[in-house]
Simulated assay, not measured.
Amino acid sequence: MIFFVSLFTTASAANNYTINVSESASYQLGQAQIETLFNKIYAPLDITPHYIFLPSKRGLEQVNAGLYDAEAGRFTIIGNQYKSLLMIPTPLAELKIVLFCIEESFCQLDVNQGFLTISGTLFTEALCESKLLSCNTVINDKSAFIALKKQRAHAIIGNSLFPKGTLCESGLEQVYIREILGQSFPLHHFIHKRHQALLAPLEQSISKLKASGEITVILNEIANEFTHCNGKIIELPPIQLNSSIDDGLILNIMN
C-alpha cells in the first residue's frame, strides 16, 4: 500500500508540479536561469516543473498551504518557519550579505548614508533595523542599480550573488562590492510535505549536481554576467561587525 501511494504521488507530481520562485529572485536571476537549474534537478525524477513567480511572503504562504508543490530557494531560518515545508538538506548555494557601491568611500555601514534594499529580502531588512540604518526598499535589483547610478542612494545592501545578474541592464560600468557579515547563509530548496517521497531523490539529485559542478556553473554564469558587457567589479576588504544578524529579529520582521 505504501509503495502504491509513493508511485501515485510521483506520477501525479510528474504531470502537474509547480515551483514557486520569489518574485525578487526572478528579477535578479532571470527566469531562464532558474528554470534551467530546477529542470536539471528534477530531470532524474522524470518531473518537468511548472513555475510561478509570486511576491516573497505570499508565495511561501501559498506553498505552505499546499496550493503549489515546492519553493525554489529560501534561507534556512525563513523556510523552516513554515510547518508544511520539507527542506532538502544539501544547500543550493551559500550566500553572503554585501554592499554594492559606485564609490569606494560609500561602502561603509554609516548611519548618515542612504541605503537601498530589494523587496522581499528579509535578511537585509533585519540588518537595517539592527544597525539603525536609513534604508529604502525598491521592487527589484534593476531599479536599485539604476537609482544608485543616479546617486539617489549611497549603497545597495544585497546578497553576494544574485544582483550581479542585472548589473549590465543598469548602465553602470564599474561597481564596488564589500562583504559586511562574516556569516554565510545556506540557500535550500523546499517541498510541500505531501511530496515527502521526493525528499531523498531530490537530495540525491542536488548532491550529484553540486559534486559534478553543474550548479556552480549555472551560478557562475550569473555572477560573471557583468563582465559580458565589459563591466568591472572591484572587491573591497570585508567589514567586521561585532554581531551577526539575529534570527529573532528576522522572525519579528516576518511576522
Rank of each mutant, 00 (worst) to 15 (best):
P91K: 05
E125F: 04
L122E: 04
G171E: 02
A93E: 15
V175A: 15
E169H: 01
A126W: 09
E179Q: 10
C168A: 10
K131H: 13
I139A: 11
I118R: 10
S170H: 11
A126L: 02
L127K: 06
V98T: 07
Q81N: 11
I156A: 14
E103K: 13
S160F: 09
C168M: 12
S130R: 13
F123P: 03
A147M: 07
K149W: 02
L133K: 03
Q183F: 00
I191M: 05
E103F: 06
F123N: 10
L133P: 02
K150G: 05
L99M: 12
E104L: 06
I177H: 02
K149H: 07
F123A: 12
L167V: 01
L99A: 07
L127E: 01
I156R: 11
E129K: 13
I191Y: 03
L133V: 08
I157F: 06
A147L: 02
S105F: 01
I97M: 13
C128D: 01
Q113G: 13
S170N: 09
F185W: 07
L167Q: 08
T137F: 08
L181A: 04
S170P: 14
D141V: 00
L122C: 00
A155T: 09
I177T: 10
I118N: 10
G114F: 02
L161N: 04
L99I: 04
H195F: 15
V138P: 10
L116E: 01
A144T: 04
I102D: 14
K96Y: 04
I139D: 15
G171I: 10
L99W: 13
I146Y: 06
F162P: 00
R152C: 00
L95E: 11
K193M: 10
S143E: 14
E169T: 04
L109A: 05
I118H: 06
I146V: 14
F190Q: 12
E129S: 15
I118D: 00
D110T: 05
Q174L: 05
T117A: 11
I157A: 09
I156H: 09
L92F: 00
I102V: 14
E173N: 10
V175G: 13
Q81V: 04
G171L: 13
F100T: 01
I146A: 06
L92P: 01
H189F: 12
Q81C: 11
Q113S: 15
F162H: 02
T90G: 06
I177G: 02
I102K: 14
G158N: 14
C128L: 03
N136A: 09
L187N: 09
S119V: 02
E103G: 10
G165K: 08
S134C: 03
T121S: 10
L181I: 01
D141A: 12
G120V: 07
L148H: 03
S160T: 09
I139E: 14
L85F: 06
I180M: 04
T90I: 09
I146R: 15
C101L: 11
L133G: 01
T90D: 05
L181R: 04
S170D: 07
